[in-house]
Amino acid sequence: MQILVDADACPVKDIIVRTAKKYKVPVTMIIDTSHELSDGYSTVITVDKARDSVDIKLINLLKREDIVVTQDYGVAAMGLGKGARVLNQNGLIYTDDNIDRLLFERHLGQKVRRAGGRTRPIKKRTGENDEVFEKALVSLLERQKLEGGPG
C-alpha cells in the first residue's frame, strides 16, 4: 500500500507526509513540470505539463490497496473503479455512493460556466479543513491496517 497524491495544487501535502511517516506508509507525489517539490520522504514523480498528465500517471501507478488524495472527481472515479480508497483535501471520502452525484454536479457546473453563468465561489481553506482531512486519512489507514493491509 502507498498513498498517491495528485500534488499540483494539494494544500495538505505536509499532513500526508507527517501521517504517512507515523504509519510507515510510502507516499508518491505526482506533479507536473511547472511545480517543484521535495519533502525528504515522498517519492516525487514529475510529468510533462500536458492536460491530465498527472492524472494519467497517478491512475497508471495505482494499485487496489492504495489510498489516493485528489480533488479531481474524474481521478476519484477511476481510483474507486480500481478498488482504491480515495479522499479529497477537505477529508471527503469518495465512495460508490457519492461519486455519481459529484460527477453530475461537476457536469452541471461546467454547463452553467460554458453558457456564461457563474457558480458558487470556492470557500477559503480553514484549519478545520486540515483537521477533517487528517482524521479521514487516519481513518483510511486504520481501516487498511485492520483489514490486514500493510502499514
Rank of each mutant, 00 (worst) to 15 (best):
A115T: 00
I93P: 02
K124H: 08
E134A: 14
P121S: 12
G116W: 06
K124N: 07
I122H: 11
F133E: 06
N98Y: 03
L80C: 07
K111N: 08
E131S: 12
D100C: 12
G83Y: 09
M78A: 09
G83L: 13
V138T: 11
P121K: 14
A76T: 04
G81Q: 10
V75W: 06
F104W: 09
L87H: 07
R118H: 12
K82R: 14
K111Y: 03
L137W: 02
D97H: 10
K123F: 00
E105D: 13
R106N: 00
V132L: 15
D96L: 13
V86K: 11
H107G: 00
H107M: 09
R114E: 13
I122A: 13
G116Q: 05
I122M: 13
I99M: 09
E128V: 11
F133N: 08
R106Q: 01
F104Y: 14
I99K: 14
G116A: 01
R85F: 03
N88C: 11
G81F: 02
Q110A: 08
L103M: 12
L103H: 06
R85W: 07
G116C: 04
V112M: 09
R118W: 06
G74K: 13
G81A: 13
D97N: 14
N129H: 15
Y94P: 08
G79W: 09
N129C: 14
L92R: 10
G116L: 09
A115D: 03
A77I: 03
D100W: 07
N88M: 05
L92G: 01
A115Y: 01
L137R: 04
E128C: 00
L102S: 02
D96S: 13
F133C: 05
A136F: 09
D130H: 12
G83C: 10
N129L: 10
T95A: 03
L137N: 02
D100N: 15
L87D: 04
V112C: 01
P121Y: 02
K111S: 05
R118Q: 13
K123S: 10
N90K: 15
E128D: 08
Q89E: 14
L102R: 12
L103E: 00
N98S: 06
Y94N: 12
L102F: 02
R106W: 06
A115N: 09
L87Q: 02
G117L: 11
N129E: 09
G83T: 03
L92W: 03
V138Y: 07
R118L: 10
F133W: 08
G116F: 07
A77V: 04
G79P: 05
G127Q: 14
L87P: 05
